[in-house]
Computed example of a mutant assay.
Amino acid sequence: MTGPDHPAAFYDRLLDSARRLSFDLREAEVDAADQDRYGMSPEWSPLFGTPSWTDLTESARKHLTRCEASHFLGVAIWLEVALQIVLLRRVHNVDPTRADVKFLFNECADENLHSLMFAEAIERLGTGHYRLDRSMVLAGWLFRTFAWDEIAYAIVLAGEEVFDVMQRDWMRDDRVADTVRRTSYVHVVEESRHMSFARQKIRDHLVRVSRPRRFVGTIVIAIGAHVIAKGMINKRIYRSVGLDWSTVRAEISRNEHHRMMFRRAASPLVAFLDREKLLNGPARWIYRKSHLL
């Protein structure tokens, strides 16, 4: 029996959504005016409102946000590739006709197209790719090598929830380059399925975990979210546009606007984790250090 609340029925509905609402914008034309637009809504720049931001010309601010948007998209690619490695490894020997496994295959197809789409957007923004810090490279290796079920889904959900809130702003903002607005729209639509899938998988796995495993998992998820949040601030961006990194780092660290925007981005994630009892004292402390709570 498979009623509307049966897990298989839930995954079948996600698959149906994927068949109806999937996109491929890799070949989209570029608006010539894109080169004179912001790379993202300027309010999402970690420097927004700081003395360094105030001192920049309008043209320099646009260029800075194009650099920052390129890096954010690079972090999204890093996250999506790691997700596929972890999840595909876990379904290598299971029944491929299961509804959840079929949706996972569809999700990986989406994620590959997202990565290609983001890579194209980075090239169109004209800033190039910013190399990740070594700490993120190490964190990525640890994640894709050792992350277990609910950990893998929750850490990826953390990144996707933050990007979802950001990109909902970007896709509606006429000041933002069309290539970013279009890719943001596609990502928001398709990631809504992926996030529903991740939340359901987390709930499924939490049903049978012990209290010690839940406690450890709660801390690991918070650490993963912290790495993602901190990894979005890349010193190479600011040095490339001629800003002093030590000054920029100090201004970002005390920029209340930046903290407010990150808390807003993380609010859906925090609400979900709270409902699923994946927030405890140490985890809350980590989220506060990350400006996600």
Rank of each mutant, 00 (worst) to 15 (best):
P4V: 12
D5W: 06
D5I: 03
A8E: 12
L14M: 08
L14P: 09
S17V: 11
L25Y: 09
A28S: 13
E29M: 11
V30P: 01
A33I: 05
D34M: 02
Q35T: 13
W44M: 12
P46K: 06
P51A: 06
P51R: 07
E68S: 10
L79H: 03
V91S: 10
H92P: 00
K102P: 04
F103M: 14
L104F: 08
F105H: 15
F105V: 11
F105P: 04
N106P: 00
E107S: 11
C108P: 02
L116P: 01
A119W: 01
L125D: 05
G128T: 08
R134F: 14
M136D: 13
L142A: 11
R144N: 06
T145I: 03
A147N: 01
A152R: 01
A154Q: 01
I155E: 00
V162N: 02
M166T: 05
V176F: 06
V176W: 06
V180I: 15
V186K: 14
H187W: 04
V189H: 07
S196F: 03
I202C: 01
V209R: 11
F215P: 04
V220I: 13
I221C: 01
I223L: 08
V227L: 04
A229H: 01
K230H: 14
I233C: 13
K235M: 07
Y238V: 02
W245P: 10
S246A: 14
A250H: 11
N255T: 05
R259F: 12
A266Y: 00
L273R: 06
E276A: 03
L279E: 08
G281E: 08
K289H: 02
